[in-house]
Nucleic acid binder design. Structure first.
Lengths: 221, 221
DNA sequence: ATATGTGAATTGATTCACAGCG
DNA sequence: CGCTGTGAATCAATTCACATAT
């Protein structure tokens, strides 16, 4: 069904959704592929092609209804149902995420938290009870957790991911700067600011000082 | 000259670098494209092709030197020189980043912080002085800032980005969930966990919620 | 013997031009 | 007419097979 959709398209759809939210809040009722493209910093072709993977949502000659397209995108992205979230690893980042106010913006409900620190277990942080990570399978089933935020130290990441998978959770938002392995039916999205920072370094550094014997790679295009 | 390199390749190089760091810390001195591929969860073809954009770093028949390739990747990614960083927006996220311990792992030096809150200005947070955002141009020049972390509220993001650009800073690590416009010679890398969460929603929705006891062929490798 | 480096083939994504519909 | 929707063409990225070097 949703196979064959470029992952770049999915990323852009998320951007269009945010743009449309802004337009909607600003009271605009109609927009166009040109307008969306400008806001999202892509081409109008791209906007139309991205949407075309999922259907025809516009009106020829007059563009798109803002609330209409907003709803379609929420539907496409699965943001019309509540997602039940657990945080695995209540260190600084985990606690910060637990306190994050906009989490429920699209019906992401924080329902549980996990850690291995006896001092934290049994307490309430960010409005949810902290359980021992050993109880992940039972608590996750009990609370119908859909998505886990993985915020443990790097050395504990793969083991925690394995626990998460074993609990029947099928989506992991991985904040740990490492590649975690999961079965094919468990989706992992990674948020790694150190990686982004290193990419930035690459682009700022510009050309790599060539080694003496290397001058032929310039061609391309 | 670093044009024509796929951005996906740059992302993977960052992953290879991290894997190599781990191997190096573990005391390994040699590796192979197969080994790196397994750790980075890509194919060995991909590893070799990615590296081939920049040169020939291995030895046929025996693979790569871990410290050797580590150094090459650091050179390629621009991580052999110190980068001077400023944080723009000392809210919760900005303060958390200021306290982040591993920032200097690859010579990222935090040299200044900015905010508009009079209560914060003049104080020291996370080891650096907080200046008024109006002073960005002078302080940034004075401290030779290379990279800005953009961590202001969403409504202030574009204006802050404009200030950053005006200060002569060429790299922005954008933590704000919005598209910021900059001239072509200013590079922006975005870290947006809400966007990642929505992508996750897309990939999960439509899938049947798994039962905790369902098959787990988790181990992998 | 073994694992790299790379042109060629294949697959995938983006761009384009215009057909189609309000 | 204007702007969307889409097949076809172009461009880019990945995969592959094997020649090459140690």
């Amino acid at each position: 069904m949703s196979k064959g959709i470029p992952s770049a398209t999915v990323s852009r759809l998320v951007t269009y959704l945010r743009v449309l939210s802004d337009l909607d809040k600003a009271g605009l009722t109609r927009t166009s592929s040109d307008h969306l493209a400008a806001e999202a910093q892509v081409t109008a072709f791209q906007v139309r092609k991205d949407l075309a993977y999922f259907g025809s949502f516009g009106t020829r000659g007059s563009g798109y209804s803002v609330p209409g397209l907003l709803l379609e995108l929420r539907r496409i992205l699965g943001l019309i149902r509540p997602w039940r979230v657990a945080i695995v690893g209540m260190g600084r980042l985990g606690q910060a995420l637990a306190d994050f106010p906009q989490l429920d913006e699209y019906d992401f409900e924080l329902v549980a938290a996990f850690d291995v620190d006896p001092v934290k277990i049994g307490t309430t942080l960010g409005g949810v009870d902290v359980h021992h990570s050993d109880d992940l399978p039972t608590v996750a089933a009990d609370k119908s957790v859909d998505i886990a935020f993985l915020t443990v130290p790097v050395d504990a990441a793969q083991a925690a991911a394995d626990d998460i998978v074993r609990s029947g959770i099928r989506g992991i938002l991985n904040f740990v700067p490492t590649v975690v392995s999961t079965p094919d039916d468990v989706r992992v999205e990674t948020v790694d600011f150190l990686a982004a920072l290193k990419r930035l370094s690459y682009y700022l550094h510009g050309q790599v000082p060539a080694k003496p014997d290397e001058l032929l790679i310039g061609g391309s295009r």
